[in-house]
Measured scan of single mutants.
Amino acid sequence: RSRTNFTLEQLNELERLFDETHYPDAFMREELSQRLGLSEARVQVWFQNRRAKCRK
């Protein structure tokens, strides 16, 4: 699998939701992934990586 390149719109939406909650539930992830045209797994990994970045 190659690296996912997020569009600016996708990143803005992901960051907006991250500001609301660092741990979106499965329903939120599924709804977001459909809206952004990403797989739920990519959304989940993005949040994992974003939380790690936040801890640094």
Rank of each mutant, 00 (worst) to 15 (best):
K53C: 08
F27V: 14
R3E: 15
L17D: 01
R3N: 15
A26I: 10
H22E: 15
V45G: 10
E31H: 03
L11D: 08
L32I: 15
C54I: 06
K53E: 14
A26C: 11
T21N: 14
E20C: 12
L38F: 03
E13D: 08
D19W: 07
F47M: 03
N49M: 04
Q48D: 13
W46M: 00
L17V: 12
L11E: 15
R35H: 02
A41Q: 10
Q10Y: 02
R3H: 11
F6Q: 02
Q48Y: 05
P24C: 02
R42E: 15
A52C: 11
S39L: 04
H22Y: 03
Q10L: 00
F27R: 14
Q44I: 10
K53M: 11
E13L: 07
F18G: 02
R55C: 15
F27Y: 12
R29G: 01
K56V: 11
Q48A: 12
T21K: 06
F6M: 09
R35N: 09
L32R: 01
F6L: 11
R3C: 11
S39G: 07
E20T: 15
Q10C: 02
D25S: 11
R16Y: 05
N5C: 07
S33F: 04
C54R: 06
H22W: 10
L38A: 14
A26Q: 08
E31W: 05
F47D: 00
R50N: 03
E13C: 07
L36W: 06
R35I: 05
M28K: 11
G37E: 09
H22L: 04
N12S: 12
V45F: 05
E9I: 03
N12C: 09
R51C: 05
V45H: 08
R55A: 14
G37R: 09
F47K: 00
E20H: 12
D25V: 02
A26Y: 11
T7Y: 01
L11G: 05
H22Q: 14
S33A: 14
L14S: 00
R16V: 05
R16T: 08
P24E: 01
T4W: 08
L32N: 01
R50I: 00
S39P: 07
S33C: 14
E15H: 03
W46N: 02
Y23P: 00
R51H: 10
R29W: 06
G37N: 13
Y23W: 09
K53Q: 14
M28S: 11
S39C: 05
D25C: 13
R29E: 04
M28H: 13
F6Y: 13
L32A: 08
A41K: 14
T4A: 07
E30W: 09
M28E: 08
K53P: 08
F47P: 00
N5W: 07
T21E: 13
D25W: 00
R50V: 00
F27M: 13
T4L: 12
R42W: 12
F6E: 02
C54L: 14
E40Y: 02
R55D: 06
R35P: 03
V45S: 10
E13W: 04
L32K: 00
Y23E: 10
F47A: 00
M28F: 01
R35K: 13
E40R: 07
L14F: 04
R1C: 11
E30V: 06
E15D: 14
H22N: 11
E15P: 01
